[in-house]
Amino acid sequence: MPLDFNTSLIEEFRTNAGRLGGPFEGWVLLLLTTTGARSGKEHTTPLGFVEDGDRLLVVGSAGGSDRHPDWYRNVLVHPAVTVELGADTWQATAVAATGAERDELFAKVVAVAPGYADYQKATSRVLPVVVLHRLPADDHTPPDRLDALADELVKVHDWLRDELAALSEGLAARGTAELTVELRRHCLTFCSGLARHHGGEDAGLFPYLAREYPGKAGVFERLQDEHATVSRALDGLRELLARVDETGPERLRPEFERLRAELEAHFAYEEAEVVPLLRAAVPDSAA
């Protein structure tokens, strides 16, 4: 779609909570906001979609063009996206399906929206199918007790450890296209979840604790430095992941093992230093 047409469509979507008129009256679209692969700027694109259980499927059809749409190129580098559907807005991880799974999902899409089959006939390019996995909503409500926040921190760490274990098992198997798809799903979900977790700590939790415990300033400085180191490692992992179909999962192993060691040490240090502070009955006593 032309840029100016997209802009007016996006404005109408947001003004009317997803309801559209004119030639799109009765259509159900979503808005997908991605981060530019090169520019780093946000871009919003109206897209058709098909529901598949608790996830959404979108196709990089570009109207049957011989070139992949920009939004698809963006998600290969930056899989963290924002989805607007009706009046709801939520964060998601965008995962491009490959191999047999891509074919199976494309068949599901065509069964609901046959027009995509015509787009595929118009080009020799294999139309990519991207799966949008909704991420749990952040809860910004302050907990009644700080130890409730401690429980949440350990819970998030345990979830991230589970994703690390799933990644490790996938890399050890070094297998089929189906394995590669599963590896990509776990890795991108993990990367997005970790980035959001660290961002929340840096913006809210650590500044609060630094005020309550001025004698622990060095702890929070170290944790924020570790966050920056992990972020750089994640960038490298994402770049490798974008080429996993060409290089194979085994190329990810050295980068992954380095990242895993850093994260395990980081989680252990954070739990040893931060959780006791959150569980303390009188925060100022540790200052």
Rank of each mutant, 00 (worst) to 15 (best):
Pro254Trp: 15
Ala111Leu: 06
Val181Ile: 02
Gly204Asn: 13
Ala261Leu: 08
His78Lys: 05
Val50Pro: 04
Leu3Thr: 14
Pro214Met: 06
Tyr116Leu: 01
Glu169Val: 14
Leu56Asp: 11
Pro276Thr: 15
Leu3Ile: 13
Asp70Arg: 10
Ser39Asn: 13
Trp90Thr: 01
Tyr213Phe: 11
Lys121Phe: 11
Trp71Met: 00
Ala165Trp: 13
Val75Ser: 01
Phe5Val: 09
His266Leu: 02
His266Cys: 00
Val274Lys: 01
Gln120Asp: 05
Leu146Val: 05
His266Val: 09
Arg73Tyr: 14
Val230Phe: 14
Thr189Pro: 00
Thr180Gly: 01
Gly204Glu: 15
Arg196Gln: 11
Ala113Glu: 11
Asp52Thr: 12
Phe13Val: 03
Asp54Trp: 11
Pro283Phe: 15
Ser61Trp: 14
Lys108Arg: 13
Glu271Gly: 00
Arg253Trp: 14
Ala92Val: 06
His133Arg: 05
Phe206His: 03
Phe106Trp: 13
Leu30Trp: 04
Arg38Met: 03
Asp162Gln: 07
Thr82Gly: 01
Phe49Ile: 08
Glu84Ile: 14
Val81His: 09
Ser8Cys: 00
Tyr269Glu: 10
Thr7Val: 07
Asp245Val: 11
Tyr269Cys: 00
Asn6Trp: 08
Ser61Pro: 10
Asn74Lys: 02
Arg102Pro: 01
Arg253Asn: 00
Thr7Met: 03
Asp225Asn: 04
Val110Met: 03
Arg19His: 09
Glu104His: 12
Thr15Gly: 00
Ser192Gly: 08
Val95Ile: 11
Glu178Cys: 00
Arg211Asp: 07
Val81Asp: 02
Ala203Gly: 02
Ala265Lys: 05
Leu149Ala: 08
Leu127Glu: 05
Leu252Tyr: 14
Gly236Pro: 09
Leu20Phe: 08
Arg251Gly: 00
Phe13Trp: 04
Thr7Lys: 05
Ala107Asp: 14
Asn6Met: 11
Leu209Ile: 07
Leu179Arg: 04
Val59His: 08
Glu11Gly: 01
Glu221Thr: 12
Leu167Phe: 12
Glu212Gly: 00
Val131Gln: 05
Gly48Leu: 14
Glu169Ile: 13
Asp54Asn: 09
Tyr269Trp: 12
Ala195Pro: 02
Glu273Trp: 15
Glu12Ile: 07
Ala272Glu: 15
Arg174Phe: 07
Trp90Pro: 00
Asp88His: 04
Leu179Trp: 06
Phe106Tyr: 13
Pro2Tyr: 14
Trp27Phe: 12
Leu85Ser: 01
Ala92Asn: 03
Ala37Glu: 14
Arg211Val: 09
Ala113Asp: 12
Ala100Ser: 07
Pro249Glu: 13
Ser192Thr: 14
Gly64Pro: 08
Thr35Lys: 02
Asp162Cys: 00
Thr180Phe: 10
Thr247His: 06
Ala195Lys: 04
Glu262Arg: 11
Val59Met: 03
Asp284Ala: 03
Arg174Ala: 12
Tyr72Ile: 00
Ala117Ser: 07
Asp118Arg: 06
Leu57Cys: 02
Ala265Ser: 09
Gly115Ala: 07
Gly170Lys: 12
Gly36Trp: 14
Glu104Asn: 02
Ala92Cys: 09
Tyr213Asp: 03
Leu149Tyr: 15
Glu271Ile: 13
Glu246Ala: 10
Leu132Ile: 02
Thr33Tyr: 08
Ala117Thr: 12
Val274Arg: 02
Pro69Asp: 13
